[in-house]
């Protein structure tokens, strides 16, 4: 009798959890679903008086997508965004891991003060630094260049902080063993420390990708020429109040912008969840 009751209580609780999870998933998924619904339908159909909740015309969607690719610089924007993301990831990992290696495993004069400065940088919001950064980039002659887009994002205080925390957990013995084994400073970094930080590096790469792909402000400021438009900026053009595009064209542009991160999420789902857990709530 008591086991029965326990079982039933358990079932009700489980069902409640499921209901709750499904409700949250619905709220999260609906906008994407609605986007697909609008794109893969005859123009105006889903927003008519008699709206549909499911796609009705696959070919209409393909038509819209090909129109966008044919008539705008969307493909190039993809290229720019991907290059921007990849270069930033590579740079952040390299700069961050090298700096973290020194900060976490070696003593040098001024270490504490310098690390304090890094922590301070973590607390300053981007909005505060964006104008000085712009002035600097402009004086370097890097406006409308890939360097201008990428380089200011390489010194990631957050990435450095995360890697330092991770590398501090590497036993000193292991570094000393490598020294006795004849490994030089860089060899210790390359052969011992980097492989041990693999998880942290993957996490940082993922977080950097998410941040870079979604970064709207900096590309907007530094890349005013069309050749350097990122996906975010192109979508922004579609969304601007004076654009003459219809709702379904705008939705198509939005969908195209959302596809790469969606695929990315599907592939790296587990690492993303682990990464966000590892790095606290910051993402």
């Amino acid at each position: 009798m008591s086991t029965m009751r326990k079982l039933r209580r358990f079932t009700v609780w489980t069902a409640l959890k499921w209901v709750f999870a499904i409700a949250i998933a619905l709220v999260a998924v609906f906008p994407i679903w609605w986007m697909l619904n609008v794109v893969f339908a005859q123009a105006g159909e889903p927003v008519s008086l008699n709206p549909r909740l499911w796609p009705t015309s696959f070919s209409a969607g393909i038509d819209k997508i090909s129109t966008i690719f044919a008539q705008t610089g969307y493909l190039r924007a993809y290229g720019v965004s991907i290059l921007y993301a990849l270069l930033t990831i590579a740079g952040v990992l390299l700069v961050g891991s090298l700096a973290a290696f020194e900060f976490s495993l070696f003593e040098f004069p001024g270490r504490k003060i310098l690390f304090g400065v890094v922590l301070l940088a973590l607390m300053v919001p981007t909005a505060v630094t964006i104008i000085p950064t712009y002035v600097l980039v402009s004086r370097l002659g890097w406006l409308n260049t890939m360097e201008g887009l990428v380089v200011p994002g390489l010194a990631s205080a957050f990435g450095l902080f995360m890697l330092v925390q991770f590398m501090r957990a590497i036993p000193k013995d292991m570094i000393e063993a490598a020294r006795l084994d004849g490994a030089g400073h860089f060899q210790i970094y390359w052969h011992v420390v980097l492989p041990l930080c693999r998880n942290a590096l993957v996490t940082l790469a993922i977080l950097t990708f998410i941040q870079t792909w979604g970064n709207y402000m900096w590309p907007l400021i530094v890349g005013t020429k069309e050749e350097l438009y990122t996906v975010g900026q192109v979508v922004g053009l579609f969304n601007s109040p004076l654009s003459h595009h219809t709702v379904d064209t705008v939705m198509t542009a939005n969908l195209l912008a959302a596809v790469p991160p969606l695929i990315f999420f599907l592939i790296f789902q587990r690492q993303i969840v682990q990464g966000i857990a590892m790095s606290g709530s910051k993402g």
């Binding site: 292991m174 000393e176 490598a178 011992v192």
Partner: peptide
């Protein structure tokens, strides 16, 4: 080393 210090 006491901790062996093997590279995992």
């Amino acid at each position: 080393f006491q901790s062996y210090a093997l590279y995992p």
